[in-house]
Amino acid sequence: MEDLSTNERNFILLAIKESKQRLDGRGLYDYRRLSVQFHNKRGSCEVALGDTLVYACVNAFIDKPYADRPHEGFFTFTVNFLPMAHPNFEQILGSTLSNKNRRIRNEISQEIERLLEKTLKRANALNVESLCIYSGKYAWNIQVHLHILSHNGNLLDACTIAALLSLSHTRIPETKILPSGDLQFLPKYKPLSLHFLPICITFGFLSDGIIILDPLIKEESVLEGRLMISMNIYGDILTLQKTGAACVGASLLMECIEVARLKVKDITKSIRTALEAAKDIEPEQFEINAERADRLVEDLISN
């Protein structure tokens, strides 16, 4: 993402190698401070991981399931980059894009969406079958929109935490099927049935087998490889992915998993306290009109 000069590059590597110090004074296995801010709407939150800032909001509306999967709801993720997040995003966005294609699909957003899909959807953290209301006719469409407001490294972790928080903060109304076959919303709200909280931890590999946790954006450009571990608090590994040119021994991998296990416990704890503090926010009033929701989403995409 960021282009570093040779001096800067050497400085980062030397500081880590010789004195185990990182650019912001952290140790090798320290996580940045996580802070969460909820807004006065259910299902929207801002997650700050150090200086990385991600805004997440959940859109839920009624949709018709696919014909070949009549008892499955929809659960999708979209990652939006804003040019203010990082000067280099402007190049990715391009100035000549039409309004329709404003939602850029580049490698980073694809990677994040894929990881979210793997950890939340495929690992059954939120079961898509639980989103079905009436087989073949009505199902919830849950869309998680992630907006990257500021990019200072480790977007993957920040995005998973933001997506999780907004999902577990969302309330959807109870529904009733009328004898005529129509759908009615009841004035009672329920949370989405998240089975567990999968949390992604990213490690960066430097040469000589040095591992750093939660890399900054400047550190990301000197990394030789990355390891993403998604875990829940029970110690189940949901995804494990090593990419990049660095090669590691099997013992180093186990060490990373142990560190991830501890960090997941801390993060889960802070997610739970944040949710506890924000439990009084009133759920949004739902209307039966599904078109309205569609329009909302369209607005969001076009803006």
Binding site: K118, R122, A123, N124, L227, D236, I237, L238, T239, L240, Q241, K242, T243, A245, C247, V248, G249, A250, L253
Partner: peptide
């Protein structure tokens, strides 16, 4: 025998 690539995803 150093690990160069690793990929696993849960299928539920």
């Amino acid at each position: 025998l150093q690990i160069a690539y690793l990929n696993y995803d849960d299928i539920g």
